[in-house]
Amino acid sequence: MTTATPPLTHVGPGLAVRHGLALAGRAIIKIRKNPESLLDVTLQPIIFLLLFVYLFGGALQGSSDAYLQVLLPGLMVQNIAFASLGTGMALNTDITKGVFDRFRSMPIARSAPLIGAVLGDVVRFVTTLTVLFVVATIMGFRVQTDPGRFLIAIALMIAFGLCLCWVSVFVGMLVKSPQAVPGTLVAFVFPLTFGSNVFVSSSTMPGWLQAWVDINPVTHLTNAGRGLLLGGDWVGDAAWAFLWAIAIAAVFFPLALRAYRRRVG
C-alpha cells in the first residue's frame, strides 16, 4: 500500500477552493437534514417586513404600500448581514466536533473548512432573500425593472454577504462559546444596518451620523438595490458596495484564517 504519487507538500488555492466546495456540500446536506437551522433566516425577515411596513410605513412614507417599495431592497441587504452572523456561530460549534480533527489530519488546504462554511451559507442567503421577496410580493411589492437587473441585485447582495461572513468567522474563532458570537456581532451589525438609509433618509440625521451613513456599504448596496429593482442609477453605488465587500474580505479573510489556526493548533 505504498503511494505511487509524489508526496503533496503544498495545497494551492485551486485545490483549496475544490476542497472548500466539497465541504460546502457537507454544509448543505446538514441544512437539508435540519431544516429548522434555517429558522433565523426565514422567520426574522418576515417579522421585520411586517413590523416595519405596517408600523412605520404610514408615518414615514404616507402609506404602507409606498414604504414597502423603498424598504424591501434595504431590508434584503439587512437580512443578508444578519444571515452572515450564523457562519461564525456554526463554525464555533463545528470545530469542537471530532470530524474537524479528521479534516485537519487530511492533506487538504487549511482554509478549506472555513471556505466550505462560508460557501455553504449561500443557501442561507438565497433562503432569506426568497422569503423576503415572496412575502413582499404578496404584500404588494413589484419589481419595476427587468429580470436581468433583478438578478444583478441578488448577485450583488449574495457577494456582499459572502464577504461579510469573514467578519463572523473571525469573531467565531475568537470567542469561546457559540452563544457569544451573535452577542458580539450585534454590536457590529446593528450600527452597520440601522446606521444606513435602509429605513429612513439620512437628511434628518445629525451631521456626524450622516457622514457615516453616506460611506456605509449598506447604504450603497441599498441604493444599488433600489436602482436595480425600482429603476434609476445603480452603477456607482454598486461599485462602491462591491469595493467595500472586497475590502472587508481582504482584511477579515486573513484575520479569520489566523484566528482559526491559532484556535485549532
Binding site: 508526496p7 507538500t9 437534514k33 480533527d101 489530519s105
Partner: peptide
Amino acid sequence: TAVRGVIGLTGQYASIDEDL
C-alpha cells in the same frame, strides 16, 4: 501536508459527521 497524505486517524471520539 505530506504526513497527512500517508496517515489515517480514528479518534477516541468518532471523527465522522453525526448528521451525515
